[in-house]
Design a protein around this nucleic acid. Structure first.
Lengths: 196, 196
DNA sequence: GTTATTATCAACATTATTGTAGATAATGAG
DNA sequence: CTCATTATCTACAATAATGTTGATAATAAC
């Protein structure tokens, strides 16, 4: 009569890479939906359809799993930005692309989490990142204006994209922006920056 | 010889208001330094020099304590903004004040937490807030430009202040802004907005 | 002083989460 | 098929956080 609870579902044996990948996928979704609280072993494991012991087996600990996810997302963010900028020439286009990339795909949220969570080893302002921004600024400064102005423009785009990525919807509602107007904001900003 | 652990420190009996106030104070400090993780009963109680049962006695539960703190901070943010704007006339000054107020005192962090934490009952876009922004936009639109432009300007200031409040230091370093240049950013932005 | 109130605490109970250990089964190699 | 590897699971242990209870002491009112 199958009174005991032994569930008789078959085990699925994944390759290590496959297992890690699906764990990362589920964890990313939960990070976006639930915030850092969503990144606990139990919850992630359950959502991924495996026991939490399995997750620990693959990552070693909760902290290591979090770190792995955030490193992966940081890599993706950087590569997104670099790829977006590689093929743009004019300064205003560069800023527009930078803005749209940073404000998309939860990149803003990611950076905010990195900045807000005291436990995480802060953003490594490693060589590649620094070089990236240096190149952007060089290209803008060479076109027109001072170097300080160029820095300020990039800074503005970065902080605005960040804020938009985090609180964009809420603030749009508060300010009274219609959906259409909100959609026009990136190009409005780009156009505006061009006229410096 | 006092072998036993009975600590013989006297109890301090605070008024309920006093107790709640010092708990809020400690909690705010911890929120700024440790993030939302710092807002647990045990930690707050220990930092405030009382047992966690006492904190529960005054607020009912951990969740209620968090909510109380965040409501208090939200009230303060709104009153800060309103007060800052009440005595400004020209549009660019209004935007400058809005920016500086939002980017100060961890207001950006607060908004980010509200937006990022899924458990919290989201920002209540209550009447007063909506009216506040409506007034700002009216005053800017009346001076010059279209209403949509005014909204976009306010939106830009808001998201930028937010981003600055969260990741300002990190991004400044990344972009290569010197401390002096970073300090000039608000006025640079105000001047820039003026030229629309 | 006596009493009533209640802020405070220590100790316990409960729950959630993390991590560990040993058993089991899926898969590939031979 | 047989064997070795190891991904996976269940069950347990350890820890931490939350909330409850009953006792205690500080303060105000009388």
């Amino acid at each position: 009569m199958n009174v005991n609870n032994k569930s008789n579902k078959k085990r699925r044996r994944r390759t290590p890479e496959e297992a890690r990948a699906s764990i990362m996928e589920v964890a990313a979704e939960r990070l976006g939906r639930l915030g850092l609280d969503g990144l606990n072993i139990s919850g992630v494991a359950k959502a991924a359809g495996m026991s939490h012991a399995t997750v620990i087996h693959h990552f070693g600990s909760t902290g290591a799993m979090r770190e792995a996810l955030l490193q992966k997302m940081t890599r993706e963010l950087l590569s997104d930005v670099m790829e977006a900028l590689q093929h743009e020439q004019s300064a205003d286009k560069v800023l527009e692309r930078l803005f749209s990339t940073l404000s998309r795909d939860g990149h803003g949220k990611l950076l905010a989490w990195l900045a807000l969570d005291s436990q995480l080893a802060g953003f490594d302002s490693t060589t590649s990142t620094g070089d990236l921004f240096k190149n952007i600024i060089d290209s803008i400064a060479s076109e027109s204006g001072s170097r300080t102005d160029a820095k300020h423009q990039v800074y503005l785009v970065a902080v605005a994209a960040l804020g938009l990525g985090i609180c964009g919807e809420v603030l749009a509602k508060l300010v009274g922006l219609s959906e259409k107007e909100a959609g026009q904001f990136p190009s409005w900003l780009a156009e505006h920056l061009q006229t410096l």
